[in-house]
Structure formats: structure tokens, C-alpha cells
Design a protein around this nucleic acid. Structure first.
Lengths: 279, 279
DNA sequence: TATAATAATGACTAACCAGTCAATTGTCAA
DNA sequence: TTGACAATTGACTGGTTAGTCATTATTATA
């Protein structure tokens, strides 16, 4: 494991326990058994460390949920959605705590923009899920349903993240319970409160869009890092396609599928699906 | 306005904007136009300031909601509940921000215990509301409904507290929308997830119970402060009753009603209602 | 007006922190 | 073994912080 990874792992533990601001670099480096100077060989600043943590976990989280929502069969869709989110929060409980603590607390502009961006991507996925599950019938209340789904995952995550008593909750039952609630609300809600307009206004905060150049840059990095021949060639071909749009949709879809299995290519494959207008 | 009140008001503004930890005493005193030393004439420490703020607003909030839930007529109960909470969050938006920011973030044990205590009181009120509104029919899913109600108020409060675009939301419509959702869930939910046991385990964290001596102490303080004759005599009689249990329920109820109108006696009247086993 | 009591000040202390960099240690090829 | 290069260290800098306290200003009283 690289020094960078060790620092991230140990720092996450401390951040979850004490919060970001209340944890000093000295504490982190002591906990890692390295010197203070060594920290700055891996990270430019303390802020860059938390950004790296947020990126690392959110990229995995978003691409996993997106992939699952787009491939799961209709019957299991909602259940799988909730179950995956809850399981992820349980597995990475330290990150969950960090995320909830820093969500409203941060003053760092770059981090704030990142959090808005990921939040926005999550909204998109939930909306896609709602449209797929309930179609046209629900169009008047779909944004309200989106907020309800977000409320549910938020509240119940806090329940087992911030409980000093370690509740060994039955995520299977919890997921079923949330599926039921969601379906009930989808079927019976008549009053629209969250309008298209409110959603648009909230989104104004998210200026950041992933640019073509950023995708190219990420691709080039991955092309250097990845050893596996098929994955590497897929990356090279996709980079060319982004620049020249020279491949047919079927080929592009296939190439992206090649990336999906490689654990280090989840995020780039998520971005490429967006950039190539595929789902 | 006393110096203490000025400090609390100005500090709240800064805390809402920058967070508690990122706001220095110097900043607060500069903003108040007083010296740093003067701060310590009003508050023993920085921590005591945030505790005073949390107490001040939560006491008002809890006693208002409780009073309303116990006096509102059945038809309007749920609507009034949501509307009051949302209006309160809008009116005291700075406090709302502070509360949400510090809820998960604090390391101060005294404050943590307070937050647990108020959270627990709020749970009690919501449960009372659910039992009054839906009675026995819902006993299997009442705790789940409680969590849903908390999710709704939480999510929608964040919506208008942390939106950089000032959304002038129609709280009337929003309350109606939440009432509808709550009723739908109450009527149709079949799966129980939050069991009595889970609620009890979560409550274990809240060791703190308001003790008889604390109520007596608070009563004595109020007796000194309050000028109004009727209010003052009511306080004196109630103090005697707490010590000697010498008054009939009707008299006690009446005396507590006397306190309800006095703005400085909301909290003591809430505590007395609990201590005298009245609702 | 004089005196006592109270309120307010702000320079000061001791502790902490992010980030730097000259000096030291470790590595590896010649 | 040597020397060149890279990795690592931790004392140090410049800055901030909560809280204190001797001094000063203000007010009330006689």
C-alpha cells in the first residue's frame, strides 16, 4: 500500500472520530508513524487530503449506484438501490461520518463545489430511477419523491452511523421497508411541492461541469497506469473517439463495458457513459 | 437588551455563517463593539456561549411545539405541527443553521448530552402526536412513522436553510404536502422496521433526566426575576406543590396555565407539565 | 466633590497549528 | 566502498487561539 493510501486510511479514522478541523497534521502523522514532513510529500495541503478522500469514496459510490440503477431488472431496482446505499454506508462508516459532518460545515470552496457536484449527480441517478420505475404517471410529483428518497437514506444512515450502541440492523428488512414507503408515496401522493423551478434554482449553485479536457486528462493518466491489455486498448480507443467521434455507438458501448469490470476504471467509465450520451 | 443577549445575537449570526469553531471570541467581541474581556463577564467560556444559545432556542422551540400538539384540535394537528416547525426554522434560520452544523460535529460532552436530551423530548412529542392522530391502529409502525416525520422536517428544512438562492417557499403548501405524505404512510405502511427495542437502545445515550432539584432551582430563579403578581404567585405555589404535593390536579393545571402566557415561563411550564404527570 | 464599588479594557500568556526547509538518513549503481 | 540521488526528518516560522488579569474608566453613593 502506498504512503498516500496509508495516510488517507488513518486520517479518515481520525476525521470520523474528531472532525476535520479538530484533527491536526501532527496527529495524523503520529498515527501513521511518519514525520510531519513526509505528509507533505504525499499531499500539497490538509485541504487536498480531504478532497482526495471525498473524491475517492464518492467516485466509487456514484459509479456503483449508477451502474446498478442502469442494469438492475425492474423488480429488484428499488430494493437493490436502497440495499446498496445502506450497505455502502455501513461498510465505509468512517467515510459516512466524515461526509455528514463536513457536508454543511466546510468553508473550502473547492470542496463545497465538489460536494454540490456529487450531490447533483446523485439527484440525477435518483430521478432516472424514479422515471424508470414509475414512468409518466408520476411526473408531477417526481421531485417530491426524490426528496423523500433522499430523506429516507439520510435519516436511516444517521441512525446507524451515530449510534453509540452498535445496532446490528437488518439491512434486508430496512431496504424492504424503504421500498414499501417509496412505493406508497409514489402511488398516492397528489400534492406537488418541489417544482421543476425549485430544482433548477438549487442547481444554479453547481456551476461545475466535467469538461472534455478533464476526461481526456483522466484517460491519459489511466492509460499510463493500467497494465491489462484489453482495458488499456479500450481506453486508447475511447480517447480517440472523444477527440474525433470516429466509432459507432455499439463499439463505444462495448468498449465502456470492457472498463466496467476493472476496479480502477469505475469512475472513468461513469464519466464516459455521460460524455458519450449513453446509458 | 442585556450585554449577554447582544453577544448571543451577534455570535449566532457569525456561527451560522462560519461555524462555531471557525469563529473566534475576538471576532464576536469586535462585531459587538466590546472588548474581549467583557465577553468573559457574561460567559464563563466559549463553550458556555453555544450551550446558552442551544438552550435558549431549543427551550422555546420544544415548549411551543409541545403546547401546540397538546392543544390543537384534531383536524389541524398535523398541519399546525409542520407549519410551526417550518416557520420556526425560517424565522430563526441562523439558529437552524447552527443546529444542523453542530449536531454531528461537536466534541463537547455537555453540549452533546443537551442535544440528545432535546432530540429525545422532540421524539416524545412526535410520538404523542402520532398516537393522538392515529391511535391504536398504527402501533406497529408508529416508530417508523416517527422517523419519517423527522426525515421530512430535516430534509425540507435544509432545502431552504442552505440554499444560496433565497427560495421564498410557500410554507402553507409545503405543510399540506407533508401532511399528505404522513397520512399516506400512516395508512398504508405494513412493514415494521424501527422496533421498540431499537428506540430503547438509541435512548440509552440519553442518561440525563431533569431532576426535581433542577426544577426547584429554576423555579426559584424565575420567582426572583418575574414581576407579574399572578405569575409570581403561581410559581411560588407550584414550587411548594413540587416539594409537598399539597395541591389538587385541577389547581395545578390551572396554575400551569397561568404560566403559559408569560414569554419567560414557557420552558418551566413545559417541565412542570411533565413533572406533575399532566398533559 | 470625594470615595467606593462596579464595569470594561486590551496587552499578555501559553498553547496550538499549517506549512517549510536545511540537515540527515537510506538506497542503489558503479 | 564510494558517491550521487532520493526519501525522510523535525526544529522552526509566522500565525492564530482561548482565556487571564492588572489597569483604567464609569457609575453610584455619601
Amino acid at each position: 500500500m502506498s504512503k498516500k493510501q496509508i495516510i488517507m486510511e488513518k486520517a479518515l479514522e481520525l476525521f470520523a472520530k474528531q472532525g476535520f478541523e479538530s484533527t491536526s497534521i501532527q496527529q495524523i502523522t503520529d498515527y501513521c508513524g511518519i514525520s510531519k514532513g513526509a505528509f507533505y510529500l504525499s499531499f500539497k495541503s490538509k485541504d487536498q487530503l480531504i478532497i482526495a478522500l471525498i473524491d475517492h469514496f464518492m467516485e466509487e459510490f456514484i459509479s456503483d449506484i449508477d451502474h446498478l440503477v442502469k442494469t438492475s431488472n425492474d423488480d429488484a431496482l428499488l430494493y437493490t438501490f436502497y440495499h446498496t446505499i445502506l450497505q455502502s454506508f455501513r461498510k465505509h462508516s468512517d467515510f459516512g461520518k466524515l461526509l455528514i459532518k463536513e457536508q454543511t460545515h466546510t468553508l473550502n470552496d473547492e470542496l463545497l463545489e465538489k460536494l454540490h457536484y456529487y450531490n447533483n449527480e446523485m439527484d440525477k441517478i435518483i430521478l432516472y430511477l424514479i422515471e424508470r420505475q414509475y414512468g409518466e404517471e408520476i411526473k408531477h410529483t417526481k421531485y417530491d419523491l426524490m426528496y423523500c428518497i433522499k430523506s429516507f437514506t439520510g435519516m436511516y444512515s444517521e441512525l446507524f452511523l451515530f449510534n453509540s450502541v452498535p445496532l446490528d440492523l437488518d439491512l434486508n428488512l430496512l431496504s424492504q421497508s424503504l421500498v414499501e414507503k417509496t412505493s406508497i408515496l409514489a402511488t398516492h401522493t397528489t400534492i406537488t411541492f418541489i417544482s421543476e423551478e425549485i430544482v433548477q434554482l438549487s442547481k444554479l449553485q453547481t456551476k461545475k461541469e466535467i469538461k472534455k479536457e478533464e476526461i481526456i486528462h483522466l484517460l491519459e493518466q489511466k492509460i499510463e497506469d493500467i497494465k491489462d491489455a484489453i482495458t488499456k486498448e479500450s481506453l486508447i480507443l475511447l480517447k480517440q473517439h472523444i477527440l474525433e467521434r470516429n466509432l459507432s455507438p455499439a463499439i463505444v458501448t462495448g468498449l465502456i463495458k470492457n472498463l466496467q469490470n476493472h476496479p480502477d476504471c469505475k469512475w472513468i467509465s461513469y464519466l464516459l457513459r455521460g460524455a458519450c450520451h449513453l446509458s
